[in-house]
Simulated assay, not measured.
Amino acid sequence: MSQNKQSGNSETILEVKNLQKHFKVGNGVVKALDGVTFSMKKGETLGLVGESGCGKSTTGRTIIRLYEPTGGEVIFKGKKVNNLRGHDLKQFNREMQMIFQDPYASLNPRMTVADIIGEGIDIHNLASGKERLERIYHLLETVGLNREHANRFPHEFSGGQRQRIGIARALAVEPDFIIADEPISALDVSIQAQVVNLLQDLQKERGLTYLFIAHDLSMVKHISDRIGVMYLGNLVELAESIELYNKPLHPYTEALLSAIPIPDPKIERTRERIILEGDVPSPLNPPSGCRFRTRCPKAMPECAIETPVLKEVQPGHFVACHLYK
Score class of each variant (00 low, 15 high):
199 L>M: 15
94 R>F: 04
224 S>T: 10
112 T>D: 11
175 P>H: 04
48 L>T: 07
33 L>F: 03
126 L>P: 02
108 N>R: 05
318 F>S: 13
112 T>F: 10
184 I>R: 03
194 Q>V: 09
175 P>I: 06
106 S>L: 03
226 R>Y: 05
136 I>R: 04
55 G>R: 01
22 H>I: 10
100 F>Y: 14
172 A>M: 00
94 R>L: 05
105 A>F: 09
284 L>P: 05
4 N>Q: 14
254 E>M: 14
302 E>H: 13
106 S>M: 06
314 Q>Y: 12
77 K>R: 15
110 R>K: 14
219 M>T: 15
188 D>Y: 11
12 T>H: 06
67 Y>D: 02
239 A>H: 10
19 L>W: 05
93 N>Q: 15
16 V>L: 01
287 P>W: 11
266 K>N: 15
231 Y>S: 03
300 M>R: 14
88 D>P: 05
310 L>N: 13
214 A>N: 08
207 G>R: 09
254 E>I: 11
239 A>Y: 11
87 H>Y: 12
54 C>D: 03
139 L>Q: 02
125 N>M: 05
206 R>E: 00
23 F>S: 04
240 E>R: 13
315 P>I: 08
113 V>A: 11
324 Y>G: 02
219 M>N: 01
19 L>Q: 00
235 L>T: 08
261 P>D: 06
92 F>Q: 09
135 R>Y: 07
287 P>G: 07
78 G>P: 06
118 G>N: 02
206 R>P: 01
133 L>R: 14
229 V>P: 00
178 I>V: 07
27 N>H: 13
222 H>T: 05
142 T>E: 13
121 I>D: 07
21 K>H: 11
94 R>C: 04
51 E>I: 03
26 G>N: 12
121 I>Y: 03
183 P>N: 02
82 N>I: 14
83 N>E: 15
308 P>W: 06
258 S>E: 09
168 A>C: 08
215 H>R: 09
